[in-house]
């Protein structure tokens, strides 16, 4: 195994992560919490065989990062766990679900293995400018499953001159999270972005955002929808809505990239905001990330159900800025109440 033993050894096994890990809260077994995963990663470095239980332990981490934020020793467990997954994938050790997800992406360019047109939702193709200053990166989920949100987001961003990539591919996030090499998709998307002449990429998916920001070119300016809208909210002709919403922080926008204040600023410009029981850096994971939804759907939805218990009384919508969070929260019982920030803003435009 080619693992960072120094980083693994920084863990003093104090168990702080055990008290915050959302997966452990559902499972109760030590192998399903961060400390257990680090112990197993250390075991792998010492020759432990990666059997199915070891894979389940490593692969049930949503990489939500609440352990990182709370670790007194300054360990970054999601990085360690993703590195262990990479190492195992490099040895050809993968679960059936991991193999299926990667096959979908490698064969079709999207997480669903959908052979259909990625831009089927775009009615007016003339809006597809060849050259532009900024690109709206739609992402697999909004392209294929939440295309209304994609259309509304693009309608907002077009006002500011954004274009779309002619043949956008999966950003590579699901591959990176689950241990696969995503460079083919990174290179292809980057080539297309450069082709438009844009320096700025805007995305409404937290998974795409963290990947574009941290795994693509350092020259690229990457903005999330909350960041972009917070900057331009007063340029939109908005009629405030007489509703109250709450905001769910997607882990890969919040804890991973510290985007906390911007979505709240946007919401407060549109309607009333009532915080969830745990929010900001303490926000609980929806359970959808890190490959957990595709590999362990029941577990994933149990986490989402628990997250819904944090929703305050008397709110009309649960707003977020990640289609994976929306899917999980919706499927766990929120239904149509879980909406995207762009949907909220679009509904307030005069």
């Amino acid at each position: 195994m080619n693992l960072d033993l120094k980083e693994i050894n920084r863990c003093v096994r104090c168990g702080t992560c055990r008290s915050v890990c959302p997966v452990f809260e559902e499972s109760g077994w030590e192998s399903a919490n961060t400390r257990g995963r680090i112990l197993l990663t250390r075991g792998l470095a010492r020759g432990l065989k990666a059997d199915s239980e070891v894979l389940d332990s490593l692969n049930t981490c949503t990489t939500c990062g609440i352990c990182t934020d709370n670790c007194p020793a300054g360990v970054n467990p999601p990085q360690l766990i993703e590195a262990a997954r990479r190492d195992l994938v490099g040895q050809g050790i993968v679960t059936r679900e991991q193999a299926a997800l990667s096959r979908n992406i490698f064969e079709s360019g999207n997480t669903f293995g959908d052979p259909g047109d990625r831009l089927a939702w775009l009615r007016d193709r003339s809006l597809l400018r060849e050259k532009a200053d900024c690109v709206y990166f739609v992402g697999c989920m909004n392209s294929y499953r939440r295309s209304d949100t994609a259309a509304r987001t693009f309608a907002l961003l077009s006002r500011f001159g954004a274009t779309l990539l002619p043949a956008e591919q999966c950003c590579g996030s699901p591959l990176v999270r689950t241990g696969f090499d995503a460079h083919r998709f990174v290179d292809e998307n980057l080539r297309q972005i450069k082709g438009t002449g844009a320096n700025t990429v805007i995305t409404g998916c937290a998974g795409c955002y963290t990947t574009l920001k941290n795994n693509y070119s350092a020259d690229l300016e990457v903005l999330s929808i909350p960041e972009f809208l917070a900057e331009h909210i007063f340029e939109l002709d908005l009629e405030p809505l007489d509703i109250t919403v709450t905001y769910h922080d997607p882990c890969h926008l919040g804890r991973h990239n510290k985007i906390y204040e911007q979505p709240r600023r946007v919401i407060e410009a549109v309607c009333n905001l009532k915080e969830m029981k745990a929010s900001g850096k303490d926000a609980r994971c929806c359970g959808g990330g890190g490959g957990v939804r595709s590999g362990y759907k029941d577990l994933s939805l149990r986490m989402a159900k628990r997250r819904l218990q944090d929703v305050p009384e008397g709110v009309d919508y649960i707003v977020t800025s990640c289609p994976l969070c929306i899917r999980n929260l919706s499927d766990a019982g929120a239904g149509e109440k879980a909406i995207d920030l762009a949907d909220l803003v679009a509904s307030a435009i005069r």
Binding site: V12, R13, C14, G15, W29, E30, S31, R35, G36, L39, L40, G43, L48, K49, D51, E53, V54, D56, S57
Partner: peptide, 15 residues
């Protein structure tokens, strides 16, 4: 109850 090696490794020590 678990007899899996992975689980047993996670319970091999305290801090």
């Amino acid at each position: 109850v678990s007899a899996s090696l992975a689980e047993r490794c996670c319970y091999a020590s305290d801090a």
